[in-house]
Design a binder for these strands. Sequence first.
DNA 1: CGTGTTCTGTGAAAAGTTTCACAAAATGGC
DNA 2: GCCATTTTGTGAAACTTTTCACAGAACACG
Lengths: 210, 210
Amino acid sequence: MNKTRKEIPVNTLERMVKYRRILDNYAADGKTIIYSHEMAKLAGNTPSQMRRDLMSCGCAGSTRAGYNVQEMQTNIKSVLGYSETKQTILVGVGNLGKAILSYFSFRVPRVQVVAAFDVMPHRIDRVISGTRCHDIKEMETIIKEQSVTLGIITVPREEAQALADRLVAAGIVGILNFAPVTLDLPDHVYVENMDITMKIEKIAFYSGEK
Amino acid sequence: MNKTRKEIPVNTLERMVKYRRILDNYAADGKTIIYSHEMAKLAGNTPSQMRRDLMSCGCAGSTRAGYNVQEMQTNIKSVLGYSETKQTILVGVGNLGKAILSYFSFRVPRVQVVAAFDVMPHRIDRVISGTRCHDIKEMETIIKEQSVTLGIITVPREEAQALADRLVAAGIVGILNFAPVTLDLPDHVYVENMDITMKIEKIAFYSGEK
DNA sequence: CGTGTTCTGTGAAAAGTTTCACAAAATGGC
DNA sequence: GCCATTTTGTGAAACTTTTCACAGAACACG
């Protein structure tokens, strides 16, 4: 799509989101410059990795004077594509779904959750953290009407694949999947899995070994 | 700790958890052997990566006859350390905390959530998915009494660092952090962050580009 | 205006991970 | 029992990511 984008290493991109957050807080304190070692401390990595990452997004610091916070913010936001907003829906308004709705309502700039869906009658037509929950029957209609491109799946495992198929058929091209299954979808759909189980097992594995 | 463990690449380890899940389902269908390409299909990766990963955990297949499912299950469980159970607590019983409690109550074999904690009086002494929520004042006591080593943080961002410090002071050595901050903790503590924001921004970035 | 110090930017090495490609083994059909 | 086929196991190549190490720029201070 954009030349610059393609060149950014995946891992760097993941960290970039974190950097944006750090810089927002840092700037809120009225600070205007920051050194790579300060940022590394805040981000939990090394100064030299910070500098590489900043290079990737076209941030130039100046020797001895560090990096200009505002310029970095602008660059990072431009790299992450903050100029365009992506319409998003969430399906499955259980505890997890609700938690995520409250998360997104005020924290993710470029992603707008336009609607939520569920099958349970008692959830339908309620508004959670500013997002209305609709009957899942209306899903395809709303996706089309509002040009929704991203979907968040927070339904039980058994229902995830069928739901994902429906989302893709309706035109969704990016999915955040919280169900513990591997979704089998066409190549043009970008899927990320949030595997809570995996993370906790990883901690169980590595903790107490250092 | 264990010689075999150290040699397993991090990424392979992450996938191992997924493999366990896949094999559990696969075995439940009464199947006893599986080929690397079948498993790759189920796991969403390539046959050759599968074979490498299986090598790392000491699984040997036999030419033309594939891998023995039960043997793989045993090996993976032994690599992941399923013989010992780790005591875990969760702090912050909001929507996210509740969602995670229901997740863990029946899905993660080696990790046992022994207690939850919150500050809100209306949450205290309630039982969520089999786990009792206690007053956070009792936290240190329960950690010590029950030899808890892992902690899951699902409190608001502002409270996360102070909470993490308390957990570490009480003896916790592994933390799963859902708050969108970088925790600053001693080296001996293993921390994993679940950064929901990051994942959705990543999807927004990559989707629609393939 | 010169010297010492503290930064950045970056080539190059190192470390980590995935993919390729093919030999060797096992199976089934004939 | 032999040939064609399928599948594993694995060296080696390719690729990705991190770390090292240091030249050069900028500033502070005398």
